[in-house]
Amino acid sequence: MSGLVELDGLEVDLRVGGSMRPVLSGTTLQIGRGEAVGLVGESGSGKSMTARSIARLLPEGAEVRGSIRFDGTEVTSLRGADLRAYRRRIAMVFQDPRAHVNPVRSIGDFLTEELRTNEGVPRAEAERRAIELLDVVGIPDGARRLRQYPHELSGGLLQRVMIASALLSEPELLLADEPTTALDVTTQSDVMALLDELRRERGLAMLFITHDLELAGAVCDRTAVMYAGQIVEEQAADALYTDPLHPYTAALVAARPDIDATAARLAAIPGRPLSAFEAPPGCAFADRCPFSEDRCESERPALMPIAAGSSRCLRAEELRGRLHLTVSDV
């Protein structure tokens, strides 16, 4: 499959107090046209950094190696007008909508600015299109909303506005960085359903970042699991529960609370998540893994294709099918 987005061995180092620390160490990922890919993992595993690398929003002084191709074009070396043209083909929905909108500009200004500036659409026409799209995202009285300011809207409503804004420029790729984490639970499901429906309707590719394995499973075609700046497993979203290919995924699945089961204490993964810069020479997950052997400590596994997905585990083949059951008993 020729992907819309192809990350190949992406390594990103950030400057932390004078020294460079890796935050991504060899991320490889494809997103096809119209495909939704979930990216899950614990905090600090590099999910957001992956999305920000694609949008070229890395902090100052970041060092990037490896390649990011979008529709065949190398993104990491884009500059000036080319970079702006590329950014118009992608859109990003952020975790906290309130922080990502200029608080002193009206919703109308915010929604129509891109159309008016980049595409020369007259104001009245841009507003008409914005009102139409607000209706699509479930905000019926768009004309009035356009005159309101961000502080007058609730978080859920503002996130809908952000989604409308993301769709207004008709992008090819949507980067959704935990779009529902800052919202309350009922609003979350509304916003998620909306995002899912609109994306399918428009054949939009999406990179969906979340902590929520189940959510990723519900809206994504494929799911990639990140740990310590690397993708450790990647396969069809619905197979992740039943047939995890990496012990880390299996442990995540086991740690998820189950509404039907009564448990005295939730299962947890022993130890703490590692950041990419702390990763040992061997497998990054080795010292928390119930299946680790001596060679796991010394030999760094590569992301190897297995079944319909891929896994970064030395024992992936031999553990296949046993992971799910064994981990929940640990």
Binding site: A55, L57, R84, A85, Y86, R87, R88, I90, A91, M92, F94, D96, A99, H100, V101, N102, P103, E113, E114, T117, N118, S165, S169
Partner: peptide, 12 residues
């Protein structure tokens, strides 16, 4: 502030 980053992604 993050709204500036959001504007950058919009291609301004």
């Amino acid at each position: 502030r993050e709204y500036i980053a959001a504007l950058e992604v919009q291609g301004f």
